[in-house]
Amino acid sequence: MKISFNINNQNRELELNPNQTLLTVLRNNGFTEVKCGCNEGECGACLVLLDDKAVNSCQVLAMSVQNKKIKTVKGIGTLHNPNLIQKIFAGTGADQCGFCSPGMIVASYSLLKENSSPSDSEILEGLDGNLCRCTGYIKIIEAVRRSSSVLLKNNVEAE
């Protein structure tokens, strides 16, 4: 059946089965920027924004969020028009294999959008659902800190 969603600011009708997760539906319909690392809610690679809140798309049944606003990492910024946080992630070495990056970016974006000057412990809490095996997190945390200070300096919100 076809169900409509608003994905990355576009209304889209997606083909799905009623037992499928949002992750499966997104990936089957070409949104492969959303990654699957575990399918159990335990790694955060599949994070998307659902009505501006980060959720594990593998833990959401697609039917339950029809007509809702969904944003993937590409809705935050693209190769040709990257978001500030994405630029800083790449510039800080917060990406190694990059498989966790789409989820990390979604988590960081949603954290900074709510709170553009998070304390260190708020940063850690905001990233507590995202696993990364490559970086040891140090440069990721650093990238979020830097993003926050650039946002503050320019007195803007995460866009």
Partner: peptide, 23 residues
């Protein structure tokens, strides 16, 4: 030098393709 990875921006914007992304 701390040169940015040549695939860095493509990775963090979800633009790169991994094996399972090929249909």
């Amino acid at each position: 030098k701390p040169i940015e990875k040549i695939d860095g921006l493509a990775l963090v914007t979800g633009n790169e393709k991994y094996t399972d992304d090929f249909y």
